[in-house]
């Protein structure tokens, strides 16, 4: 049996919400926050390992109290236990400190783990840094962007596509992998399943003091990077704005810019209605 830890993050991501093409609206039941897509795939990888080799899955997340939602989702899908790291002092951590904090929680709550599984990246920051840094913190081997996994005698065989190289890798456990969204298509939680999960008592909540961490070691305070300034980035060009009937607009487009379109196509286009 393998002891697995899956690190999942809740991302508040209105712009990434699934789009209901039938009604033309966002699926707003998820508007509050959702499990980061790559983390879903990571969880799916863990669930498949559990099915194949037997295992125990701990889902762990650091975030505001609301982040417990993704742990309930994970429990519904088949995780055995949830660990929520939440503390105002932990807020604003960069990847350096996020991985530090999660590592301490792993050492405290499940020191005997075989495999830590992370998503390759989060949808809100997409740094893809937490996984590899967590492996450094725990001093275990790491392979990122994994697309398939096989386990034999506590040795993991993996494949990944890395910069146009299809690589087959092997490492002895304990170790850490990060999972992309290319494979391990996730299953979805049913609403009734979710309701049930909320009645489980499988979630442990820990704050900084529980982890024996002082305020100087965590959160924004401890993070090496600082945000100086945040600004909007829209670049504006002087341009032609065209409105009205589509047919008319396109005629004008070809009249004025037909040569640009034609030369990109390397074809000679008729740019005027009347030219032959």
């Amino acid at each position: 049996m393998l002891k697995l830890i899956v690190c999942i993050k809740q991302v508040p991501m209105v712009s990434e919400l699934p789009w209901d093409s039938r009604t033309g609206t966002l699926k707003r039941e998820m508007a509050e926050g959702m499990m980061n897509p790559a983390c879903k795939h990571a969880l799916e990888a863990a669930l498949r390992i559990k099915r194949e080799y037997g295992g125990h899955i701990t889902a762990m997340t650091m975030g505001p109290p609301m982040a417990a939602e993704v742990l309930y989702e994970a429990l519904t899908l088949g995780a055995d236990r949830g660990v929520l790291l939440t503390d105002k002092q932990m807020a604003g951590a960069d990847t350096m400190i996020t991985s530090f904090t999660i590592a301490r929680a792993i050492e405290k709550e499940c020191p005997e783990f075989d495999l830590v599984i992370c998503g390759s990246q989060t949808a809100d920051s997409e740094t893809a840094q937490v996984g590899p840094q967590l492996a450094e913190e725990l001093n275990i081997p790491c392979a990122a962007y994994i697309e398939s996994l096989e386990c034999k005698d506590k040795c993991l065989r993996m494949t990944r596509l890395s910069d146009d190289f299809l690589e087959t890798l092997e490492m002895d456990l304990p170790g850490l992998v990060t999972i992309t969204t290319r494979q391990f298509r996730p299953r979805y939680a049913t609403l009734s399943g979710l309701e049930e999960a909320f009645q489980f008592s499988g979630i442990t909540t820990l704050n900084a003091a529980d982890l024996g961490l002082s305020p100087e070691q965590i959160g924004m305070k401890a993070s090496p990077t600082r945000i100086l300034d945040v600004f909007s980035s829209t670049a504006e060009k002087k341009n032609h704005v065209m409105t009205g009937a589509v047919k008319k607009i396109l005629e004008e487009v070809f009249e004025k810019f037909g040569d640009k379109i034609g030369s990109a196509m390397e074809k000679d286009l008729k740019t005027h209605e009347h030219s032959d």
């Binding site: 712009s15 600082r226 945000i227 100086l228 300034d229 600004f231």
Partner: peptide, 10 residues
Amino acid sequence: GGNLLAKIIT
């Protein structure tokens, strides 16, 4: 995640 850029220093 939006149309924002941040200036970050170390």
